[in-house]
Write a protein that binds this DNA or RNA. Structure first.
Lengths: 291, 291
DNA sequence: GCTTGTTTGGAACTTATATTCCATTTTCCT
DNA sequence: AGGAAAATGGAATATAAGTTCCAAACAAGC
């Protein structure tokens, strides 16, 4: 019988492709025929039905199922999901054409230079952040914040959008936050309520806003655990801090974006929520179930 | 019965997209909802089943069939074929695919999975934004905002960090702004001062905060020029707007980042500042230069 | 050339998918 | 407000799909 020849079949298209090419010679005639067809017309595998594909590949429908099983999948649908995943969320024809259009109509305009510059700065910032972050820091920060009764968010000026976003994101996740630094301006009184059972998250970049530093000292003095997001190990926020993240944003024309800090904020919010929810379910990557 | 409104439905995705956008306003509520979903998640239409799509779009399966028929197709499958065709026979940007898969399979710890996921979402958002933006829109927006006496910034909830950032960035560039949507909450009175010589910038994403829509109507009613940042041509902000930007942020585990919107905000701030400086130099006795 | 194990074709079966239909709700007009 | 028309939700139905099964064909070893 044509049993599964593989332990775990690949999820990624590239691996599957390599597997098919490698197995090709060892497969019986009809299955090899299918293998060739899948390599030559991957789009057809992604969109067709067992009936339509088998017709075009000149085999029986059952042969397609056998082929999938020979590769270790439970059936044809599972194999097909890999071919579909390859086409999802990719830049498509429509967008590619738009892009081409934009590039040759006004690729050199001053406006486009700004867009390009800031886009590149954002992408670089995010990439560097990803490369440098220590996952255990994220875990630790999530632990601290998840254990907090209330999370006090401290951020002024350029950092304020970050804390504002965290306030929103954590709020939608059902986590209580207090946002300092808003134009209302009664921050010190608000922060005086922070205690050991709460936690604070402070964000500040060079040049550090004196208020942020002062507020941070205050809450630390009240024995409130602190998580900091800043841009240098020498930042005043990095001292007396339970855990801190270093975020260095690339700049363009002297302006720094917030892309990396925002990315960290989003990840942090979800990490906290997941931890609160208990260990919850692991992120199942079973988005492949379609059809 | 919802009869076919069209003679022959389009075969090409671009035509279909235009048709949907055009028809959108004339369609009943649920069908309009489907219209918005098809524009926002075309890949899902291409690959999903009636059941899965209807679930994610929060409508009944029958509504999808009705939608297809309202557009002139014989059924949903015929409509779906157009969405599939769009993804077929694409140019082989094989490198991009390889890269995407490598990134997708990298992270191992749950924390790193979050970082990777949001980083990828941020990068994708920025790339897509860069590909789709029309530089002349940026020029036009900069012209409007540079000519303004005061710039009124309207953004609530998820959009608030964007306007908060703009408030900071424009402020450091010496441009007068008023930020609505802050927790202080006296927005309507503040916005009532906006006039024809000012300008407003509104930011809102699905689900549109009713307050944002209301504020926007108010300032437009006061003849204040409006620049909007939103996520769909169907957004209430895209109507009655001098110029608007479409920002579609990729999501990860249902959470959207702000990377693309922030990038646009940064570019916009600098573009406005540059234009002001330029105008000031060119005609020094201009009434616009004063501030 | 016979036997054994594998492969293949095609029909039967089972699952799930798209579509239709109808009762109910909502909207719009008088 | 009252009534007609349109729209909606949800179950029922018909269709199509994927999968399994078995007999026939084939290949390999004795």
């Amino acid at each position: 019988m044509t049993e599964a020849l593989t332990d775990i079949p690949p999820h990624a298209f590239n691996e599957l492709r390599d597997l098919i090419i490698e197995k090709r010679d060892k497969l019986p005639r009809r299955l090899a025929q299918v293998a060739a067809y899948t390599i030559e017309f991957p789009d057809d595998i992604a969109f067709g039905t067992v009936g339509s594909i088998s017709e075009r590949a000149a085999v029986q429908p059952s042969t397609l199922v056998r082929f999938a099983k020979a590769l270790g999948y439970s059936g044809f649908s599972e194999l097909q999901a890999v071919f579909q995943q390859r086409l999802r969320d990719r830049p498509n024809n429509y967008e590619a054409r738009l892009q081409a259009f934009d590039e040759h109509t006004s690729g050199h305009s001053p406006a486009m230079a700004l867009i390009d510059g800031f886009s590149e700065a954002a992408t670089r910032s995010v990439e560097r952040f990803k490369a440098r972050i220590k996952p255990e820091d994220l875990d630790e920060a999530a632990r601290i914040l998840a254990a907090a009764d209330t999370i006090y968010l401290i951020g002024l000026r350029r950092s304020y959008p970050i804390t504002a976003y965290l306030s929103y994101a954590l709020g939608t996740l059902g986590i209580k936050t207090v946002l300092a630094g808003s134009p209302s301006g009664v921050d010190r009184e608000i922060l005086s309520f922070a205690g050991a059972r709460d936690a604070a998250l402070a964000v500040s970049f060079t040049p550090y806003a004196p208020m942020t530093v002062e507020y941070t000292r205050q809450v630390v003095g009240q024995n409130t655990p602190l998580v900091a997001i800043t841009d240098s190990p020498f930042s005043p926020l990095a001292l007396n801090t339970s855990v801190w993240f270093e975020i260095v944003e690339s700049d363009f024309e002297g302006f720094r974006t917030l892309a990396a800090a925002m990315t960290l904020a989003a990840a942090l919010a979800v990490a906290v929520a997941e931890r609160r929810r208990g260990v919850g379910k692991q992120n199942e990557n079973s988005e492949l179930s379609g059809r």
